[in-house]
Design a protein around this nucleic acid. Structure first.
Lengths: 227, 227, 227, 227
DNA sequence: AGCTAATCGAGACGGTACGTCACGTCTTAAT
DNA sequence: ATTAAGACGTGACGTACCGTCTCGATTAGCT
């Protein structure tokens, strides 16, 4: 677990030498600089410490490992909150937002995002932290777009927000992680457009519930495959 | 780059001692066994070799690193092809397929899938190989569902297949990689249902409406954020 | 090249954790212990490190290879200087000294001596170091015997010291390296006795000059052979 | 233990394919060629086999290890026996012989000689073989010089031959192995001269230096490896 | 002013895995 | 039966990064 990475200033100062702010910020910026060049996997704690002009012990004193250093560096360099678009149209807002996401992925920050997910696959605790500290707030913001749309009657209110958001952002992120198909503004538009047909209030005329005759469920021994 | 991992049997046998099938398969199965216990990151080549009763040199002779060993192990233990569902309804087929994917993710194979993507984030060459050797054939199969749907007139023919597939599977995979929301058959159904409203032929009446007054494009210096 | 193998103690201490004396000495003594059992060729760095309870990295940090570890171990366990004999007679002194050498060769140290020379045949740099760090000081000491003898008028002053020393010690060492003839105190005495007839001042009465008729120089294409 | 390295031709031919002479000689010459470049330690069996265009198995079929291959290569390329000098004077003969030895050490063969001794330090069996197969015959030849000298009354008959030979050749070889002092014809002369004062029947009062023309000194760069 | 913590730099250390190399054995098909 | 080709197990190599630790040196609040 990460200790307090941000320096609290309120409490009664403890005895002794105070924690150096210079120290913290130079570690964070050294980390960001290194991550411009190499991927998180290839950035070593030694390198961070050396570049920051800081001893490794200091680094380990405040962070348990380099992933969390990187996460803090990521967060602190993303502080400036971006206003979620509010054009009066949810379709519009999401399209703009999705284009933002795509542009984001082209930045070093985008690469970090992917690598956080990657690291998370072998460190669930870190993944949880990543979700809490970064993803949650992001989703809160786009959730607002959704809710405005619902309030305006543009969007179906019978759909879970999480499902809706995943439907909109999931394909992009999947594509970015795996790289099996191109990503640009055109694709963003197309994707939102199609997704919205499912999310918008105006129902398709014959959206009659499927009369599907479910065949005997897939025999269990048949090995399921990934999409 | 991986050398020939599978042993070809057709050509005129080369001089000298033949490559040992025992050797290869014991490496692969040792790898699978280890991956039941620990994640790919934590499985070492030493451990694989030892467990397989094989020398490390032999392992390195045929695979450049453990990721590719794991990929081969993964592939060879997935050989049994699963018939893609064909119920006569694309909606049905995709729902079934998606449920399969979800069940797949709960297996060790699913975990491997995620870790391949994770490893791919710091090894693009490997990611490419993963796409070619595994993902492509999977997508070919589900593409058939799509095309059948289009042929039957159930699905819009003006939508890129890749986009459609990502719309259906992307959200699931994203969710599984990040773990921010639950995954079960119910969600699968809901997801396909919603996605299908966008993909089906019968368009929503006023899908054409796009009165969006795009506000001045997001100022470029505003940092785009992830969804 | 070996870095400083001995730990200097005088200067102002450098920053940071100090080099561990325990570490160094346990490496050296582990090395000596292993060399009691097996020859230098068969002692591995892994074994030294393990026996010393030290990480291999630490070993490699201070020594470039096992030969230099062994040399240091050898030197530090030979620290006790052996008093060069001083009986008033050079003949006597050298005889005593030679017997010492022979006895020395029967010890593990003697075996190490031979193996240093052996290793030196494929590593000239190491051989040079061996000469500088060990042999030189040894020869300085016996050189004193020689010079005392010259001063006393017992020995010819027109003979190069190095030649004299090699005449006295070379045969022994050759014999020990190759093992073609026995070595004991008797042989030591005989050898010094004979050698001394050539080195002593008092010439034998009739030193009839050789009337040798030099044959034409050896035809160059005739291959010269070893003795 | 080395099997028969030389091919016997007398017996009734065994069944099957006959041993290839080409094979043997190409191994030997490949070995010699490689030893011109690198020291015995650094010549690998793989390299010998590859250069000889021969399989490693063939090599190991006839020799137990590369040292013995090298020894055979050495011997077979030294076949041409050199007539021991016979000038009528033992002093002269030994001086000539010693000069030969020194020249020999400057050749690749000389380097091999040293490396055989080096290898012998960790492989006593090999050392023994080296003594038997090479050294012994060499010593037999110089022993003849000694015995002629004794017969002629030039040399003391109360001295063990081995001791005499070691007194003459030991210093040179020691010097060559360790490289602590220079070696040239002048030193050879001086050394024999001094040694002879101890070995001759009537020791000579004035060691007048002989006026022989010293053969052009061997170019220094021809001295391979240590020493 | 001195005392007492806490922090910081430097960097040594044990541990573990890496990927490579040479050895000597073994297997196979061809000669 | 011998050969060329070459796969294989063994085991050491020297390197790299991890996270811990031990040193003084520095700094600041507290006595």
């Amino acid at each position: 677990m990460a200790k307090t990475a941000s320096i609290p200033e309120t409490e009664p100062k403890p005895r002794g030498r105070q924690r150096s702010h210079v120290c913290e910020s130079s570690i964070l910026s050294a980390t960001m600089e290194l991550l411009e060049t190499k991927c998180l996997r290839d950035v070593t704690c030694d390198a961070i410490a050396q570049r920051a002009g800081v001893s490794k012990a200091t680094l380990y004193k405040w962070w348990p490992n380099k992933n969390l250093v990187a996460l803090d560096a990521f967060l602190s360099s993303m502080r400036r909150s971006v206003p979620t678009p509010d054009t009066g149209s949810a379709l519009n807002d999401f399209t703009l937002e999705l284009e933002s996401v795509i542009r984001f992925y082209a930045t070093p920050h985008g690469a970090m995002f992917r690598q956080f997910i990657a690291e998370g696959q072998s460190d669930p605790e870190f993944l949880a932290l990543f979700r809490e500290r970064f993803l949650r707030s992001r989703r809160e913001e786009v959730r607002i777009i959704w809710e405005r749309g619902v309030a305006r009657g543009e969007l179906r209110e019978d759909i879970e927000v999480d499902l809706a958001l995943d439907l909109i952002f999931g394909p992009m992120i999947y594509r970015h992680l795996v790289g099996h198909a191109p990503l640009d503004d055109l694709h963003a538009e197309a994707l939102v457009a199609v997704a919205f047909r499912g999310l918008q209030k105006q129902p398709c005329p014959n959206d009659s519930v499927d009369p599907r005759k479910v065949p005997a469920e897939l025999e269990p021994e048949k090995r399921p495959l990934a999409g």
